[in-house]
Amino acid sequence: MPFLLKGVVVTIELTIMAAVLAFIMAFIAGFARLSKFAIVRGITQVYVEIFRGTSLLVQLFWVYFVLPFFGIELSAMMTGVLVLGLNYGAYASEVIRSSILAIPKGQTEAGIALNMSPSLIMKRIILPQALLIMLPPLGNYLIELIKSTALVLLITLHDLMFCGTMINNVTMRTTEIYSLVLIIYFLLAYPLTLAIRRLEKRLSAGRL
């Protein structure tokens, strides 16, 4: 059991670091896709399509097993953070982009009429409103991210999933171990699900 808890800690660490990277990537890519320069949009599009198109686990394997051929050797943890972050960043960039576009044009125009600079309009008018729209879908991606951390086991990171498998190999108490693993993941992810639902309800009830 303590062994399993150690795995939980790794899973949480991995989730947090990957989520931070994903958030940053999503913002960069989301804004880049709104750029007026076609080349910036093009490059971002390629990044997004590659990470959305080529299956998360394949990406993990590629970074872990292929990159060393190019002299880049990353630990399983680093690989997990990097791949999960880039992968979910690609998915979530669409959330960022569409939330910003969802703010009515009149808001920007009101900002211009008050002689605000473009960056001020973005920072104080558009983003605060767009962030609220983003929260529920970003939260859903976070849940998916927690679940996806399990895959890092397959490149032998000692996370919750790995620890479960290890104990199983030693003790052969398969039923208990795997049930416990499932329950722990559930306990990690489900509170988040409930929080997002509450948020969604409040948002759609018009408390902005």
């Binding site: 009149g106 009101a110 009429a113 008050l114």
Partner: peptide
């Protein structure tokens, strides 16, 4: 800066109170 405008759809900032709607530009512009 010499021109101001009132819109058909008001275009108030929904995430700000009435007072902040009116003080936002004087403070930051």
């Amino acid at each position: 800066s010499k021109v101001g405008m009132i819109f058909q759809q008001f275009n108030l900032f929904p995430h700000m109170t009435v007072l902040r709607n009116v003080t936002e530009a004087p403070i930051h512009v």
